[in-house]
Amino acid sequence: MNTTTLRRNATNVAVPLVFGVIVLVAWQRFVEWRKIKPFILPTPSTIWHEAVDKVNLLRAASFVTGENAIVGLLLGIIVGTVVAMIANRFRVLSELITPLAAAISAVPIVVIVSILNNMFPLGSQVARRLMVTIIVFFVVFVNVARGLRQSDPTQVELMRSYAASERDVMRKVRLPNAMPFLFTAIKIAAPISVTTAFVSEYFGGTQDGLGQKIASSMSSSKFPLGWAYVGAACLVGLIFFAAANILEFLAVPWQRRRDSR
């Protein structure tokens, strides 16, 4: 890594950090100055103290939501990639899936979650995980399918000149070419998987995830705790996002190279 990329990375971290601090300070001052009631908006310091106090509760709920998100994320990535590969070989399939994808994404999550909740026994996390899987699947499918299609024609032609099998073309050209697209999809899908898990929890099912905890804290007037749960949800989303970025950085070094040109 050279100094320019180092400097750019430092700027990438510093700018949102400074901005975040400014927002927090402004929030604190504003609430104190206007004497806003805690049930409307507590101060960041109250929320922080509550979070430190109830850190075990926050951790437990975060793990439940995090696990729902990661299981759905991994399933969605695997299924999305495999289906994209099959669709690349059989044109008919991709013509079937694309309108289906459009139709399903037009259905609100509430509806799908309610349907799924009815399919599985009470206390099961399966419905939430399936909901995450569905959302992640489409993001991954669309991107990977594009990556497989956009392989360098020179490379594909070379493979044909070597009399390579379709399987070799897929393994040695199309898949590696689709890797940057896959990781772009994962970067988009990772934070979405957390919000989807979180929203799915909110609409019924077991009471142990962040989505339910926020709802129940707020309705029992534990506002600072509710906000602490919101903060935990943000943190889980950030961790997922960061992990996806680090993964991309490690997995497709040639893409890193392309970007820095």
């Binding site: 070379l158 070597y162 590696p176």
Partner: peptide, 24 residues
């Protein structure tokens, strides 16, 4: 065969690029 674009495989090092047709 060789084209105007070298068409090297970015994810393979030089030796493994040369070895590709042999691999096949």
């Amino acid at each position: 065969m060789a084209f105007q674009q070298a068409g090297l495989f970015e994810w393979r090092n030089v030796a493994r690029n040369i070895e590709l047709p042999l691999e096949i």
